[in-house]
């Protein structure tokens, strides 16, 4: 299977542009983090990738074939949601919901499913509607993992989960990914908990892609420079500054760029505070700055 390609994709709901001219290539067998504020278009993007929504214009391609109307490609994708919204299904017992999923996903791993039920300690005789919010999220997680779909998408797979269950999910996800690599995209707001699992990060803002970088590159490039304004300005002349904060003569610049050893020496000589930045802080500053990189 080749990479997933989105080419000039727009998705419009009534007057709202949920996805705005998005061009993106998703590499295979990597774990992506999809980050964005509420209403940024994360769920819409996941649904477009899962062929559950069709683009208003533009194309989504897998294997150089257009995903729309392609049943074979659609079956290779699984979008695990944190909640089931279809009335009627909510009244089903969890076992029935898993039985249905096992009938639909061609690569469903029944052994793995049973193991996950034990690990998450889920009572499958319970009705979905009577299960707690965390248990409902677990249903989505188990379907996503046991589907063994080559492209697995998780939409906020933590809602209602306690820290122990969340840690368990991250652990299972990574172990399973190592055993059988596949393309995984996780949309999340709990950036700190997952940033070590991500290989690549996508940041969406108002339907536009603000960042598409390797996690390693982000770790190397994301920096905060704090000091006197004229000194900080002099060392960040040709750098990508994504957020500026000033307090009198002192400034804080968030930069996403590489620095040579000589540049770092100069920064130290000028007594500028030069520190790295977490993904969460980068996302916050990027969203506040609102500049496209």
């Amino acid at each position: 299977m080749n990479n997933v390609m989105l080419n000039e994709v727009y998705k419009v709901f009534d007057d709202t542009k949920a996805i705005d001219n998005l061009t993106l290539e998703i590499e295979l067998n990597k774990i992506y983090g999809l980050i964005g504020r509420n209403g940024a278009g994360k769920t819409t993007l996941l649904k477009l990738l899962a062929n559950q929504l069709y683009p208003t214009s533009g194309t989504v391609k897998i294997d150089d074939k257009i995903l729309k109307d392609n049943d074979e490609l659609t079956q290779r994708i699984c979008l695990a949601r944190e909640v089931i919204s279809v009335r009627g299904i909510k009244d089903f017992k969890l076992k029935q919901i898993f039985d249905i999923a096992s009938l639909i996903y061609p690569n469903w791993d029944n052994e793995f499913y049973k193991k996950l039920i034990d690990q998450f300690d889920l009572d499958i005789k319970k009705k979905y509607i009577k299960s707690s919010k965390g248990m409902q999220t677990m249903v989505g997680i188990i379907i996503g993992l046991a589907s063994r779909a080559p492209v697995t998408l998780f939409d906020e797979p933590y809602v209602g989960l306690d820290p122990v269950a969340r840690e368990l999910f991250y652990e299972i996800l990574i172990n399973d990914y190592e055993k059988s690599p596949r393309t995984i995209i996780i949309s999340t707001h709990l950036i700190n908990e997952l940033e070590n699992s991500f290989e690549k990060v996508l940041i969406l803002h108002k339907g536009k892609l603000m960042l598409n970088e390797d996690m390693e590159d982000i770790k190397n490039k994301a920096r905060v420079l704090s000091g006197e304004k004229n000194k900080v300005d002099s060392v960040t002349k040709n750098k990508k500054i994504i957020y500026k904060q000033s307090l009198g003569r002192l400034v804080n610049y968030t930069v996403l760029d590489t620095f040579t050893e000589q540049e770092i020496k100069d920064i130290n000589n000028l007594q500028i505070d030069f520190s790295s930045l977490s993904l969460q802080k980068l996302f916050v500053n990027l969203s506040k700055g609102g500049e496209t990189i």
């Binding site: 899962a50 659609t74 079956q75 699984c78 089931i84 279809v86 009627g88 999923a101 639909i104 996903y105």
Partner: peptide, 13 residues
């Protein structure tokens, strides 16, 4: 009302 939306959400062709 039930099967068509739910199966679409499970990526049924």
């Amino acid at each position: 009302v039930i099967s068509v939306p739910y199966l679409t959400s499970l990526n049924c062709p």
